[in-house]
């Protein structure tokens, strides 16, 4: 077998079968994965949640993960945000001609491992090969179905004045790790992506502390973007305390050099939760006992005033808007 993916692998013939056998069937072995045109699945008992997401990331491999792990975490975490236990996932690959077969297999292996950890089954997949230059490396689209836990209902609209705003860990690590991996700025730092499937810790939280209002993963656009989305959806204000926002020293160093704000950098294993005030302590206790969320912290409160706005209380006790994110993130230097 060739060591790179060629257009022949996408032609549907013998070589396509070879690719599927070597890479996908090997790693996506389970009782639902079939050679037929569609998988046949038992229906969940309760309400379902369904989500889809496309992943393009350059480079495909970065400290702490790769696009495969990312694509499973992304969909698992989207389901998790609705209080839905991830059950089934599909994945569709668009692979650029010339992509390394070994790397493709590593990507599939990461998907297998991450899916197993989150308890989700990869039930179907598709592979297309694009000509050189028609795609950049490897693109993955994943779709997931989950079963919503009985009695759980979360939505950005449920954010209410008095709620505590919690982040499940330090912020901005994925965005920083990717920025460093691209090596556009010649900065070196030991920053790994936070990319992780959060169903297990969030499941523990929902089981032990019913009544969480909002769960949102702070992916593209980071925590700042999520907070603005929720402030708009619920028609509330959000007040943050800058000194309480957890940011790793290395992330502070990198963002400080480039004049970037960690609140706008992507997280792939860190969520934003809105929890009624009375449940705050128990929520923090449960989260801090779980892996991936041990660094959970309250960063602010929901207010009735300043609707649609995120307010920052700064280190000198002054208050100002957190700028509403938009636009491409660009370093600010000169």
């Amino acid at each position: 077998m060739n060591d790179t993916v060629t257009l022949a692998h996408g032609a549907g013939g013998k070589q396509t079968a070879e690719l599927i056998d070597r890479v996908f069937r090997k790693h996506f072995q389970n009782r639902y994965f079939t050679s037929d045109d569609a998988s046949v699945l038992p229906a969940p008992a309760g309400k379902m949640a369904m989500t889809t997401d496309g992943f393009i990331v350059s480079p495909a491999f970065f400290p702490g993960g790769n696009i495969g792990k990312l694509s499973v975490c992304g969909t698992v975490n989207d389901l998790t945000c609705m209080g839905a236990k991830p059950l089934y996932m599909t994945c569709a690959f668009v692979i650029e001609e010339g992509f390394s077969m070994e790397e493709l297999e590593q990507i599939a292996a990461s998907m297998e491992q991450t899916a197993a950890e989150a308890g989700v089954v990869l039930v179907a997949g598709d592979t297309k090969v694009a000509g050189k230059g028609q795609a950049d490396g490897c693109f993955i689209t994943t779709t997931g179905i989950g079963e919503i836990l009985d009695g759980v209902s979360t939505s950005g609209r449920f954010a209410a004045p008095g709620d505590a705003v919690i982040v499940t860990g330090d912020i901005g690590r994925h965005g920083t790790a990717i920025l460093l991996a691209r090596d556009d700025y010649g900065i070196e730092a030991d920053v790994k992506t936070d990319c992780a499937p959060l169903w297990n810790p969030i499941h523990a939280l929902l089981r032990e502390v019913p009544g969480v209002h909002v769960i949102r993963d702070a992916t593209r656009g980071g925590v700042g973007t999520v907070l603005y989305e929720i402030a708009h959806e619920a028609g509330v204000g959000i007040s943050l305390e800058r000194e309480k926002i957890p940011v790793a020293e290395e992330v502070k160093g990198v963002t400080g050099m480039l004049g970037l704000e960690p609140l706008y950098l992507a997280c792939e294993g860190t969520m934003v939760l809105f929890v009624p005030e009375s449940l705050t302590d128990s929520a923090l206790r449960v989260l801090r006992e779980q892996s991936y969320t041990a660094g959970a912290a309250v960063i602010g409160r929901v207010t009735a005033e300043n609707s649609g706005r995120v307010i920052m209380e700064t280190e000198i006790g002054a208050r100002t808007y957190l700028p509403e994110p938009g636009n491409e993130l660009l370093p600010r230097i000169c």
Partner: peptide, 12 residues
């Protein structure tokens, strides 16, 4: 300018 706004200094 940026830091004065970011730190909310005008507000005090």
């Amino acid at each position: 300018t940026h830091e004065i706004f970011r730190q909310g200094i005008r507000g005090i």
